[in-house]
Amino acid sequence: MSTVKKTKTTGKKPVKAPKASAAKAGKAAISNTAAENPSVADNGQTPGVRRRDFIHIATVSFAGVGAAAVAMPLVSQMSASADVLALASIEVDVAAIQPGQSIKTSWRKQPVFIRNLTPAEVEEANKVDVGALRDPQTLADRTKPGKENWLITLGVCTHLGCVPLGAAAGEVKGEYGGYFCPCHGSHYDTAARIRKGPAPTNLVVPEFAFISDTVVKIG
């Protein structure tokens, strides 16, 4: 270690010597003299640093790179496979959904809630002081212009991924009239924004577009 320090204070280029040999306590005295005489240290031919030390380090490094290269496919095989990644978008006909009704559909193996909000629910969502929300978003941010009554969200609680209740008829809607997650008690309001409980963000709004008045394309 003392080698490195001394070399630095003299302002010379750091010795290319492998750290392993510098760390050997037995060589400390020799290394010191090498540091005091930088011309010797620079060509790496001091008695303390042998060419064989370089071969040792190169060999171990090469084996390390090889081990990492083998580990990579062993780890990456667990990532989503090609058939799972082949994601399609879906089209949903929403003509039959009356105000106050909602449907659950499946997209990318995850539930999606499509809800036709009543005017009262829209009003209630717009009444909320957005700045006071944990994840501030207006209803307009979460819907399409002119289609403010169509709330389309993933039915996946942002806490640990359960499907919140409230989409099907007769289910508990929670304290804010939107959705309630039974797993750990997260409450969402009529715009599916997080209001109470452990979930960190609002229910996710997937990418979607109305391709006609009654058909919505998700994904």
Binding site: K104, S106, K109, P111, G155, V163, L165, P182, H184, P198
Partner: peptide
Amino acid sequence: PLSTPAHIVPEWYFLPFYAILKAFT
């Protein structure tokens, strides 16, 4: 995959740790 049971709980031997998880709101 589209419906979570209304009363989902883990096996009894995980309950104390599950309660600690749920305590943080």
